Amino acid sequence: DVGLLVGSTPAAARKPMLASLAAGDLPVLIGTHALIEEGVQFKNLALTVVDEQHRFGVGQRLAVRQKAERTPHFLSMTATPIPRTLGLTLFGDLDISILGEMPPGRQPVKTRMVPPEKRADAYTFIRKQVNAGRQVFVICPLIQESDKLGVRSATQELEKLQRDVFPELASRIALLHGRLKSAEKEAVMAGFQRGDVAILVSTSVVEVGIDIPNATVMMIEGADRFGLAQLHQFRGRVGRGREESWCFLFTDAEDPQSLKRLQAVVTNQSGFDLAEIDLELRGWGDLAGYRQHGKDFKMASLLDAVLISDAQSEAVRLLDRDPALDGEPALRRQLSAYRQVFALD
């Protein structure tokens, strides 16, 4: 009664599955972005659950709605709400539930910002962790070197760690990125899960869906190149066992805005708190359109609960007075556009 649809699902299995789905004989379908492709049709879609919501754009979420004649119930889950979603919850357009407790036995991940002069100390700490039988993630913004961006790449980092930093661990340091073939990626991850690989150098492909309880260190190169949500997701790859874990944010940045963002990650363990900071820094985008961040109008404070409550009360009074908004044609047009993209958010 449960189907699985992903990009690699063979045509021989895909065709009868989609036929069963369209006929209403398959009650539950789990999948990746493959679920929103053309040809995937539900007879009576009643509930949509989106995990890792921040990985989907507005248009992709809207595509799910178009799979049904009526708008289905919608449950969105994420450790790091995007600014647009948080903005919608602030205006009362989304109900929200927060799981504020960690799973039993887990400890908060200790997060530190590492300037260039402290790099050697961090390497010494990582060596001690590996010698104690633990494992390490090393995240880089790029696969290959770039003269324009001037940040460390995954391939560069692999060579440096094997040759200069941890030569005694060279055979236990592996590379993972999106350009590897599926079989190569699976082999690397299998080695990491078995413990054969002690240090995994990777790009952002490990941001979600990776569970290695023995990994206790997340080392992020060029941390200022990542967004708050990504940094929090990376941090969530460690601290999944009972051992104490650390997240090191390596940066050469000196501009105040970048350092402010990184300090927010150091100070805040909650993804929701980080989402609020992200909202303040980037804005919530176009709530009646497709942009998921940016500032379209000014408020004394983006998180001014009293002002938002007053605006909601005024909206209710206006609708009681003029339900069809006949006297507010510009507002009626804006709401019509809003409904089109808000259907699943």
Rank of each mutant, 00 (worst) to 15 (best):
K110F: 14
K160T: 07
I82V: 08
D25M: 14
A23Q: 09
M102C: 13
T155D: 10
R112A: 12
A120Y: 06
I139D: 02
Q135M: 01
Q41D: 08
V138S: 01
T155C: 14
E38V: 10
G39C: 03
S20F: 07
K160A: 05
G57M: 13
R55K: 13
K118Y: 14
R106S: 00
L35Q: 00
A22L: 15
R119W: 13
P103F: 02
Q129G: 07
E38P: 15
T155N: 06
F74T: 02
I36R: 00
K43P: 15
R70Y: 07
S153W: 04
V138M: 09
V109D: 00
R152L: 14
L86R: 02
G133D: 08
I126H: 03
F42E: 03
I139S: 00
Q144P: 03
S97I: 03
L99P: 02
P27T: 00
V165Q: 06
M113T: 04
F56V: 05
V138K: 08
R84D: 11
R152V: 06
L26N: 00
V40Q: 01
A63W: 05
K128E: 10
T48Q: 06
Q156S: 09
A122K: 06
I143H: 02
V151M: 09
Q156N: 13
K67F: 05
L21I: 09
V136W: 03
S153H: 11
P72E: 01
K128A: 14
L47E: 00
V136H: 04
E145Y: 15
G92T: 09
I126E: 02
D51P: 10
Q129K: 15
K128Y: 07
R163V: 05
A132D: 08
N131L: 14
R134W: 09
I143D: 00
S153A: 11
G92M: 14
S20D: 13
E117H: 14
L47W: 04
D164T: 13
I126V: 11
V28I: 12
R152C: 08
F125D: 01
E101K: 11
R65M: 11
S97H: 13
G31E: 06
R70V: 10
P141S: 12
I82Y: 11
L29E: 10
T71Q: 09
Y123W: 05
G87W: 10
H73M: 12
F166N: 09
G92A: 07
I143S: 00
P72A: 01
A34M: 11
A122M: 05
F91T: 01
D25T: 15
C140G: 02
I36V: 08
H73P: 11
L158A: 07
L29V: 13
V64D: 04
L75R: 02
E157D: 10
G59L: 00
E117T: 10
I82L: 13
V136E: 02
L149K: 12
R112E: 15
P83N: 02
P115V: 11
R84V: 03
G59N: 07
